[in-house]
Design a protein around this nucleic acid. Structure first.
Lengths: 335, 335
DNA sequence: CTGTTAGCGCGTTCAA
DNA sequence: TTGAACGCGCTAACAG
């Protein structure tokens, strides 16, 4: 049915080993032979069977990427960084969506491993015991991407979320704001949830402002929750003069809720987010935020993975990339 | 090194054939034997090798999905529809980004085929001869997803882009607008580019309004081009009273450009887009648009593919889904 | 520079 | 209900 390496061998009058060499760019082939083989390949429309190849060579030149939510701009951008580096090193990537569900994460990790990927990049919220167990039983390298784990030996590439939040809130504080609300992520999310809340809290306390959980509401990173939660803050006395959202999307929701209430951003209330997704510039006023180097996180983690797959020694297998405060016009000094 | 089916066989005191039966849920195994095997699998942490399995069975239970741009909300949503149905039918999907580059599209199609996927879902702009050739030499079913091709036999699932654009522009016309600008996509994009322009043109002509290409500018579907192109229209005499953008993102860019010029939407100028991405509701004023059933396009195309892979007869292999006009407050009657 | 041969890990007859 | 044996398409020694 399908044309195999044997067919090519017969067609070109050489052995299958020679065809294999040609296909794999092995230099030990006479140019003339190589040409004959190429012609036969062309004529027959031969397409190497990667499955057979993988079985024989025990390598698939494929890395698996588990992504929590493909429709999330952050992860999509990280994926681009991964892709570019993967291409550079001639790896294919197979992207698996895990829907932010732990159970599904475990499932796709196993599926990927069964498919004999040469390495794995894992993006997810929380790394549990179960994750660690799955990672350990894999006998290919794994690196966490835009994801952190306390578990000492596991390589990861991420930013310092606590510090990013600290910087965002501090940017508000140095502009004279003292009553600062936060729209947080869920506490069971260690990076974007808990760590960012802790950064908020530390910034407050560093400035001698008491932390008050009345000024914190928990959202789910969606525009809608930013939009729905904000009115609660608007009814408070005293009303906060600034809002810190744990991500841009909720920040934008907050901006619109404020505007829909007839107030002005940043005139009445300043808003700052985190992430610097493209959307942050696609609002009026444009959203101030702390930029996360998403593309680089993807690129660096993929690069790290190639080294690991290659069994090179790596000096730094747990890397924290720099974030950057970006002040746009959703923030104004409080006078 | 890795534990194989032989190890499990030895451990449980049966032959590998029996282990294979257990793993594949073949009913012809004594329950007691099955239990023994399961225990051995558990104890050894056996993970079936999907590569070997694929080689032996000539099936991978995997479908390849080529996606033009993973960071595009439309495709991400289509992918969700694909995913859900794929899971339902126990297929894994491997997502490959093609960067909207024809050359890369061909490359990933071939890579996917080499990996012996059981079927292929292709999303892309234009289907060229080269694409068709690659599809033909594949001996697995392929369906175009959110993509159309004139090429008769190729199955696809899409909306009617021309009609969607027609409806958007007509919505403007029935509200009294006669001077309607368009921010179009590139003409080498048959669906989102050319077809939508044709719909615009037909709507105008149906209403007896002369088409004038001074009122058409070409963007690249990005917010920035909507934003950059709009000022050109603002300087025209007479200034258009409405703008039709070939997608939501450019529409939002246009809204902001209008606002940045000190004008009001929809007071001075109405704006309508196409697609109904989540962003359309994340602007002020909220963007009117024509909804494209993205999730369904993905789901239906995947379902179609399962039938094809299963060699079932399908009555309709070229399906056009309905779109829907959604009027929000970026549009107002022209008085 | 080229061919022969032995697996890679598993599904699948065919017998028993 | 089970096992033995073959082969899926290819890579990787090894021999020549």
């Amino acid at each position: 049915m399908n044309v195999t390496i044997y067919d090519v061998a017969r067609e070109s009058g050489v052995s299958m080993a020679t065809v294999s060499r040609v296909v794999n760019n092995n230099p030990n082939v006479k140019p003339q032979t190589r040409k004959k083989v190429y012609e036969a390949i062309e004529r027959l429309g031969y397409r190497p069977n990667a499955v057979a190849r993988g079985l024989a060579s025990k390598k698939t030149t494929t890395v698996g990427v588990v992504i929590p939510d493909i429709s999330n701009a952050i992860f999509a951008e990280v994926a681009r960084g991964i892709e570019d580096i993967a291409n550079m090193y001639h790896y294919n990537i197979i992207l698996c969506n895990a829907d932010k569900k732990k159970e599904k994460e475990i499932r796709v990790i196993n599926t990927l491993l069964e498919k004999q990927v040469d390495g794995l990049l894992f993006m997810g919220g929380k790394v549990t015991e179960e994750h660690v167990h799955a990672f350990q039983t894999a006998n290919v390298p794994i690196v966490l991407c835009a994801t952190t784990s306390e578990q000492e030996p596991i390589p990861f590439v991420d930013i310092n979320h606590e510090a990013a939040a600290f910087d965002a809130v501090t940017a508000l504080i140095v502009r004279g704001h003292r009553s600062i609300a936060m729209i947080s992520g869920p506490m069971d999310d260690p990076s974007n949830g808990l760590a960012r809340l802790q950064g908020y809290r530390r910034a407050l306390e560093t400035a001698g402002i008491a932390f008050d959980d009345k000024y914190v509401r928990i959202g789910n990173y969606r525009y809608e929750t930013g939009n729905d939660l904000m009115p609660y803050f608007l009814t408070m006395h005293p009303r906060p003069t600034a809002v810190f959202a744990a991500n841009d999307e909720m920040g934008i929701g907050a901006i619109h809720a404020i505007q829909d209430a007839g107030l002005n951003v940043p005139g009445d209330i300043s808003v700052i987010g985190i992430d610097n997704t493209r959307m942050a510039s696609m609002v009026r006023p444009q959203l101030s935020t702390v930029a996360q180097p998403m593309y680089d996180i993807g690129a660096v983690s993929m690069r790290l993975l190639t080294k690991l797959m290659n069994k090179e020694v790596v000096s730094q297998s747990r890397v924290v990339l720099a974030h950057e405060l970006i002040v746009r016009n959703s923030v104004k000094a409080n006078t």
